[in-house]
């Protein structure tokens, strides 16, 4: 039974039917089976946040979920959020504020930041830091990341919906 198991799920709006070994985590499944390499793998034990994706609309650590657990569920990765334009303004703000240097943490940062902005339209800097506390950046010192998220929240409030 350590043989591949069939799974069906939706990834970025597309139906996926594949066989996968139980030991393969969701991050590796996305990267190696679906070639969606925007989801990054850092610590592989839930500390760094680089592998953050959405499952059924909620952010999770893709390294702490098995691909077989996602059977029947909906997954959105940074590719999905980027292609749909959902995070276009956030991405621009990150670029303008130099909120990334090497970029390794950025997909996870964007996933976590967008999750916050969906729940709060006027988050304080403290709340931004709290929501991103599980996402590590080793380059920027976080200040510019918090700036970019604050600026995006501000500009979204002024945008007619």
């Amino acid at each position: 039974m350590t043989a591949p198991m069939p799974i069906s799920l939706e990834v970025n709006g597309e139906r996926v039917d594949l066989h996968v070994l139980p030991r393969v985590n969701l991050a590796d499944f996305l990267r190696e089976h679906l070639h969606l390499t925007g989801t990054h793998v850092g610590c592989e034990h839930g500390v760094c946040g680089a592998c953050t994706v959405r499952v059924n609309g909620e952010i999770v650590r893709a390294c702490l979920m098995l691909a077989v657990q996602v059977h029947g569920k909906t997954v959105q990765t940074i590719e999905g959020l980027s292609d749909s334009g959902e995070v276009a303004d956030l991405q621009s703000a990150f670029r303008e504020r130099n909120a990334l240097q090497c970029g390794y943490c950025t997909p996870g940062m964007l996933m976590a930041a967008e999750d916050l902005l969906k729940q709060q339209n006027e988050p304080s800097r403290e709340l931004i830091r709290e929501h991103l506390s599980g996402n590590y950046c080793r380059c920027t010192g976080y200040q510019a990341i918090v700036d970019a998220i604050e600026a995006t929240a501000h500009s979204r409030r002024g945008r007619p919906r």
Binding site: P22, N25, H45, G46, R61, L64, M65, L66, V68, Q69
Partner: peptide
């Protein structure tokens, strides 16, 4: 296996290696 947020890190670090996971999710 329920949420897996303690079990899966321990398995990734090979601190535990169960032969079977029973997913009660």
């Amino acid at each position: 296996l329920s949420g897996g947020q303690s079990l899966l890190p321990a398995m990734n670090l090979r601190l535990v290696s169960p032969q079977i996971l029973i997913d009660i999710g």
